[in-house]
Design a protein around this nucleic acid. Sequence first.
DNA 1: CGCCAGGGCCATA
DNA 2: TATGGCCATGGC
Length: 227
Amino acid sequence: MKYRLFDGDEHTHMNKNAYDIYTYLFNAYGPQGWWPASSDFEIMMGAILVQNTKWLQVERAMTRLRPYLTPVQIDRLPMEELARLIRPSGFYNMKAKRIKNFMVWYKRYHFSVAEVKKRDRQLLREELLAINGIGKETADVLLLYVFGIPVFIVDAYARRIFERLGFDMPKQYDTFRMDVERQLPKDATVHNEFHALLVEHAKDVCTSVPRCHKCPLLSICEQRIRT
DNA sequence: CGCCAGGGCCATA
DNA sequence: TATGGCCATGGC
């Protein structure tokens, strides 16, 4: 038996589960104040470094990278040197190249977040996705946490949590993303917190795939239609 | 020891 | 469209 997340009329209360989950998590954990970085550029680097890696490894890499943590310096850094610095994050050759690819794009905006923000949202997402090494999740992290655009980030944690709660999951990234976005206010702050809260919840209690019967979130989700 | 983490690309069918 | 191999470190 599975629960359906996104069936029915989107204007009925039956279709507000994503927002109910958000509300529960926010009340349980409080505001998270993400992304864990002290500058926009650090968020950009972190977004790439965290690909399929634990955050602890990103912190190690970031510590080594911090003396060079400005766009101009990273842009100047030889690929081999960059790879050496970010080694603890794993996949360091790939990621060094991906950072370089990203820098080529960012340079077109004169390393200015304000410049990028002038761009149309849809176009901006497409531009980011056109960079080799920037996939949908990484693009959405940048859109949300750097450029303040309200998007739902579909990561392994989000999939795992919704899966564990018994939802019949959309397979496609954008399908899942848009289904959730439809249920939340188009507010960057809400999406910012939601993603952070899902990560927090995942690290807290939802640490493995098998279904959890104790999670308090289940009582919220059980109000849903059964299939 | 083996498993896997806040992915993404590319080749193949 | 959908898998599978690949990239690589460090914690458990």
